[in-house]
Design a protein around this nucleic acid. Structure first.
Length: 488
RNA sequence: CGGGGAGUGGCGCAGGCCGGUAGCGCAUUCGCUUUGGGAGCGAAGGGUCGCAGGUUCAAAUCCUGUCUCCCCGACCA
């Protein structure tokens, strides 16, 4: 058997790339840093979208769509915001091409009076609209989400984890009071946590970013952080309390019940196709992708095995009867009846693509009223009776979902520890994983740790109860431990 | 922008030092045999060797220039 995926422990980056390619999720594009999302990768993303979208609707949000192009002047209205994004913007300067000796060239005559920025995020263009939508407290809150693509001109990219163009959702809400906006920020953070844990089976730590890691233009950035199999952390989602920063920049005021005018309070929150990268790195193994059943485009694949035409007829009839039962239970099931591939090829391919359960049926099984059932997560293979198979599979899919979560949870716990001295920290950080340690709260200390160890403060955890201690670097007092890791 | 590496069929690579008909694996197409863990045999198609100059009877190979991409940093979530 030809092994096509690099061993995880030999070269984690290569392994990741191999899994993406072998699962047919995405390819590199002709444009550096962009990616082609293939049907299987997109189907996975669409399942994630559907689950998230439902959660957004359930919390009162509506979808809308705003322009791809942002006038350059908009971006500069919020000082922090422009500073954060200025260095990574795609800028449209011209509107035409004209023929030239070697094909076409930009027509200098078509230079735009004001350049357009391809959105790196949509706060500015959205708040420009909100100014017109909001006059009174009766217009609030505004709870809007947008599914879109954005562009950030990154230096170094990796499929799904950091691409120049990526797909995401961005929620942008406007509120009458600070309390309401903070509540919304936390509510959406919890939506993300629930999604990550219940659907992706990826345990996360929730927390607040330090000043230096905060979103450009936010007052507070909340985040979920997950630990990957190689011991590096992944920021999987962010929810920002924007205060009145954008309302002030775009002059969005409302009149309250009391007749007074005040600036609107804002939040924004987003997750992206990076989640697909997180999913891969949380569960997959050296045979390829592993997808939790709730998100798997195909939850079950049925592989018929036969030689003669006679066998083919009976095996396919047998297979279809199982498929019908599974469909009646609402299970997403696919029949792989391609005749130009042998069963071994199909087994390996479905494993590489992460299908949670495989059912193989051949003449032997028909004869004995059995099926062969194989779990993707544990690679266990069993011959089980045909009787009651649909119900068994239904239960098994639920088991796989929770087992995947439990395994990831345990792995994360095993790679999380408290450290008290900086000497120990520098040693421990080399092993990867999450480290809880005391920090004096200054950006200077944070920067020194980053310079020394490449570790960053992933967040100030929300869960932690206070614990008095001393900063591991300066010895200054600290009221709680913060979460450190090397990150993607 | 610093340090390293690479450009040769669709993909992955060898050949280069020592110039002499363009090779291998995978993939593709056709045929037969196969099909319970990535099939076997036979045949076929497909490449201006990144680009531009130079040296030579002759350049993938030597020389000069140039472009692009990748990796490690820097930057970035």
């Amino acid at each position: 058997m030809a092994k096509r995926i690099t061993n995880r422990n030999d070269d984690y980056s290569q392994w990741y790339l191999d899994v993406v390619k072998e699962a047919k999720l995405a390819d590199h594009s002709p444009v550096r840093g962009c990616m082609v999302i293939r049907p299987h990768g997109f189907a996975l993303w669409e399942n994630m979208k559907a689950a998230l979208d439902k959660m957004f609707k359930d919390t009162g949000h509506e979808n809308a769509y705003f322009p791809l192009f942002i006038p350059k002047s908009f971006l500069s209205k919020e000082a922090q915001h422009v500073e954060g994004f200025a260095k990574e913007c795609a800028v449209v300067t011209h509107s035409r091409l004209k023929s030239a000796e070697n094909g076409v060239e930009v027509d200098p005559e078509s230079k735009l009076e004001e350049e357009l920025i391809v959105r790196p995020t949509s706060e500015t263009i959205i708040w420009d609209s909100y100014r017109n939508w909001i006059q009174s407290y009766r217009d609030l809150p505004i709870l809007i989400n947008q599914w879109a693509n954005v562009v950030r001109w990154e230096m170094r990219t990796r499929l799904f984890l950091r691409t120049m163009e990526f797909l995401w959702q961005e929620g942008h809400t406007a509120h009458a009071t600070k309390e309401e906006a903070v509540e919304e920020t936390e509510r959406m953070l919890n939506v993300y946590k629930t999604f990550a844990e219940d659907f992706m089976a990826m345990p996360v730590i929730t927390g607040v970013k330090t000043e230096s890691e905060r979103f450009a233009g936010a007052v507070d950035t909340y985040c979920i952080e997950a630990l990957m199999q190689d011991g590096k952390a992944l920021q999987a989602g962010t929810s920002h309390f924007l205060g009145q920063n954008f309302a002030k920049a775009f002059d969005v005021k409302f009149q309250g019940k009391d007749g007074e005018h005040d600036y609107v309070w804002a939040t924004s929150w987003g997750v992206s196709t990076r989640l697909v990268g997180g999913l891969i790195m949380t569960h997959s193994d050296d045979n390829g992708l592993v997808i939790p059943p709730k998100l798997a485009p195909d939850q079950v694949v049925v592989v018929p095995i036969f030689k003669s035409d006679e066998q083919k007829a009976t095996v396919l009839t047998y297979a279809h009867s199982i498929i019908d039962q599974l469909k009646n239970l609402g299970i997403r099931v696919k029949l792989d009846d391609r005749e130009n591939y042998n069963p071994g090829y199909k087994f390996a391919e479905h494993e590489a693509q992460g299908v949670p359960l495989r059912v193989a049926v051949g003449p032997r099984d028909v004869e004995n009223s059995n099926v062969e059932l194989a779990r993707r997560d544990t690679l266990e293979k069993n011959i089980v009776p045909r009787e009651g198979i649909a119900e068994q599979i239904d239960q098994l899919l639920k088991d796989i979902q929770t087992d995947l979560y439990d395994a990831a949870k345990e792995r994360t716990a095993n790679n999380t520890r408290n450290v008290d001295s900086y000497e120990e920290f520098q040693k421990e950080i080399e092993k990867g994983g999450f480290i809880y340690a005391h920090w004096d709260g200054t950006p200077e200390t944070e920067e020194k740790i980053k310079q020394d160890t490449k570790a960053t403060i992933r967040c100030i955890p929300l869960e932690s109860s206070g614990e008095n201690g001393k900063c591991m670097v300066t010895g200054n007092p600290s009221k709680r431990r913060v979460l450190f890791a090397r990150a993607y």
